[in-house]
Nucleic acid binder design. Structure first.
Lengths: 352, 352
DNA sequence: TTGAAAGCGCTAACAC
DNA sequence: GTGTTAGCGCTTTCAA
């Protein structure tokens, strides 16, 4: 029953057009699909018939025979997070220009959701997958894609033991720079705050679940160590998932004089809590963060941040993916994009 | 040649599993697809074979025969705009729970891009389409979908002459409320600023390209008129696309004492320009806006805003769409969600 | 409960 | 330049 289950009507097919134009199905398909050759006369007849009948190609049928869907999947932590929204836009623009559409899935940074997402995308026969892996250290949820030899490009974070292209920002250098700024201002008791989950207190050598946070922490700790700060690892506060305010409170009680927020959302929570506590930025506490979010230039004071080329991260990832889809067999590429410091007014020398 | 063009390998199909399990293709398909009936023994054999061969369903082939793709298209102005990102997330969650995925397309508020998006989605045989129409007054780009009887639900704005479900916020009431707040504070020279394109100076009775902006303007003008303000339409500033700062400057020169920003991006630009001009909020100029964006509670002063249930707009639109896809033939529904006032510190009595 | 066969709408050989 | 014929991988009658 060749009827459309959605409305009981039947869509016009190549066969219909062929019949109306009195040519074979193959010929009609050739002019409609824009491949092969056809005489001027036939071409006109077919196009007229198509127009008249209201022919609309079925991309799915095409995919069935060509094996190419012209869609790529993108798995982000949460599209509501401005970081992912921007990266997605960057990817979407590149994809669109190359004739691809995006199937968007949120993982909420959970491996199971990520694995489901991969399955769905593979089942829908996307030509490739872009993903910000939920876990750098255990990317088993992504392995299926690799095993089934589907082109995949990771962005924002890398994944251990996965031989695929990656596009990330230079978080190590960025974190170093941010910490150095604080150190230069005279701070010694500087905290690094992240919501990332981690089993224990952070210790040098620990591997974090997100390579970008891992790089930031290492850059931070490295800078402090180089400056002669004793046991910098003790200033790293992870697991702040639901409790950035509480963490900030504890930090303030501990006499910390500066905070490095691992992302803009954490910085926001810290900013609010500091305000609630009546601590002034930067007089009482200095605050710096990653990502040049809107609010960081609208708040008083403006926040000094390490800006990431978010758009470009998404765009570059899409470019690499499309190259792979096209069959580029070059060795795996690991792109690291530079970050950019935006200095504002949230740093001052420590109080005491 | 049944090979995968992407990697030269061939995916395992129902036929392969059937052969290995020594049953017919139909039987294998029944157990693999989870429909029809099969004896325990056969079921086990098929599943074992599938497992062993590494069978993965081809959703496209399924769509070909069933006509259902389990994907829905969503067309937004720009996914980078927090409003659309949030609405998309709301829609994604509802869609996912019902087994649908989202194909995301940006229209940049252009009718041609919107029309292309519709074509692409229709070609990919999505089961339905969610769209924030680029134009309320000329939704011809959406007509194809309606004519082809594809379920479609509009969100954030309605479209003239299109008999489809819509989900919008109560912008008329929201704008009235915002204007009233300013009026109550003593303001009489209040401007409404929007980036929407409009041929001429705004005049009462004009129809704007976006129903939500149109409603906001009407609510604004209505409130001023009710308060006895003479010719309120002259306070409406449209076409601010690239020049919110310039518009704000002119407004200040004109002695305006309060500004209603049509959305959070405009409010942001206005906030910056006012700061640049050295005008203080709310002492020199009062400022209110739509959307409870992050920054409005982080800035100094905090901005009084009319919050929209953005998440819910997307979610509700998805719910309606899914109902239609399921074959609900109920009359077209037009959902209007209430807005919520969030009072902060950006309103004060006018200076003079 | 199981199987045979047809068909979804298209493209891809291959022949003429 | 055009037509014929097979499929792509699945679901769906219809019989047995």
């Amino acid at each position: 029953m060749p009827v459309d289950p959605l409305n009981g009507r039947r869509e016009v097919t190549v066969s219909d057009v062929a019949a109306a134009a009195k040519v074979s199905k193959a010929t009609a398909a050739r002019v409609l699909g824009g491949y092969g050759a056809a005489s001027e006369a036939v071409r006109d007849r077919v196009q007229a018939a198509a127009e008249q009948l209201g022919y609309h190609p079925n991309a799915l049928a095409k995919t069935m025979t060509t094996g190419r869907s012209n869609s790529i999947g993108i798995i982000v932590g949460d599209i509501e997070n401005p970081f992912f929204a921007q990266a997605t836009r960057g990817a979407a623009d590149v994809a669109k220009a190359a004739g691809y559409d995006l199937i968007l899935l949120n993982s909420d940074e959970h491996a199971v959701a990520e694995e489901n997402a991969i399955s769905v995308l593979l089942a829908k026969r996307v030509d490739g997958i872009l993903v910000a892996p939920a876990s750098t250290t255990d990317p088993s949820s992504l392995r299926e894609a690799v095993e089934r030899a589907r082109p995949m490009v990771l962005f924002d974070r890398v994944a251990d033991g996965l031989d695929v292209d990656t596009v990330v920002a230079d978080n190590l250098a960025g974190a170093r720079r941010l910490a150095q700024l604080l150190l230069d201002a005279g701070h010694r008791r500087i905290a690094f705050v992240s919501t990332i989950a981690h089993a224990d207190e952070y210790r040098v050598g620990d591997r974090l679940g997100s390579s970008s946070v891992d790089d930031r922490v290492r850059g931070f700790v490295g800078a402090l160590a180089d400056a002669g700060v004793d046991d910098p690892a003790r200033f790293v506060r992870l697991n702040a998932r639901d409790g950035v305010p509480a963490v900030v409170r504890a930090l303030v009680d501990d006499g910390i004089t500066a905070i490095v927020a691992s992302d803009s959302l954490i910085a926001q929570a810290a900013f609010r809590e500091l305000r609630t506590l009546g601590r002034r930025i930067p007089d009482d506490v200095s605050l710096v963060a990653f990502d040049d979010a809107d609010w960081t230039s609208l708040s008083a004071p403006g926040i000094t941040v390490m800006a990431q080329p978010i758009h470009e991260i998404g765009a570059e990832a899409a470019r690499l993916l499309i190259r792979r889809i096209a069959g580029d067999g070059a060795p795996t590429e690991h792109v690291v994009l530079p970050q950019r410091l935006v200095e504002r007014e949230s740093i001052a020398p420590p109080r005491s």
